[in-house]
C-alpha cells in the first residue's frame, strides 16, 4: 500500500517552515507525520496528511512549491531492533532506501515508519512477503 506524501520546497530563511505549518493550521488541515531534510541552502518539508490533494492546493495558493510523492508505511515490530528487521528485509532484497522517518501513534502507542525506497513497488512486495506489517492509507489517515 502506498501512502501519498507532500514534499514542500523551503528556502533557507527564518520562519519559512512555521509559515507553511501556519497555513495548514489556519486552513484546518491535520498532519499525521512530518519530517524535514535540509542543507545549508534549502530544505524539503515532507508531510503525511489525511487530505493530500486539498492540502497541496492550499499550500500552492500560498505560493509554496509542492509535489505529491509516495512512501510506504510499516508498523514497527514491538521489540528491540524492530527497525533493524525492516531495514534488513530491504537490504536482503537489494532495495535502496532513499530516506525514512517515523512517528508514534499515541492511542495505541504504536510506532510507524515511513520508507521511501528507490522502487516503491518492489519495496512493498519485499516487505509484505517477508512478514512486515504494511499499513494502508486509510489506516494512517484515520489515526
Amino acid at each position: 500500500m502506498k501512502i501519498k506524501q507532500l514534499s514542500i520546497f523551503l528556502e533557507n530563511r527564518k520562519g519559512r517552515m512555521k509559515k507553511a505549518l501556519d497555513v495548514l493550521e489556519n486552513g484546518g488541515m491535520n498532519i499525521r507525520a512530518l519530517s524535514i531534510a535540509d542543507t545549508s541552502d534549502f530544505g524539503i518539508l515532507r508531510l503525511i496528511v489525511p487530505e493530500p490533494d486539498k492540502t497541496k492546493k492550499l499550500l500552492e495558493d500560498n505560493s509554496f512549491i509542492v509535489k505529491i510523492g509516495e512512501v510506504i508505511a510499516v508498523r514497527m515490530p514491538d521489540k528491540p531492533g524492530g527497525l533493524g528487521v525492516i531495514l534488513g528485509i530491504l537490504d536482503e532484497n537489494n532495495i535502496n532506501l532513499e530516506y525514512l522517518y517515523a512517528f508514534v501513534e499515541e492511542k495505541d502507542e504504536m510506532a510507524i515508519v515511513l520508507l521511501h525506497p528507490e522502487n516503491i513497488e518492489a519495496g512493498i512486495r519485499a516487505l509484505e512477503s517477508d512478514g512486515a506489517k504494511v499499513v494502508s492509507a486509510e489506516e494512517i489517515y484515520g489515526l
Binding site: 534549502f42 524539503i44 532513499e98
Partner: peptide, 13 residues
C-alpha cells in the same frame, strides 16, 4: 525555484 524544477530529493536539487 519552480514546480518543474523542484524534486523531493535533496541530491537532485
Amino acid at each position: 525555484a519552480s514546480e518543474d524544477l523542484f524534486s523531493d530529493e535533496i541530491k537532485e536539487l
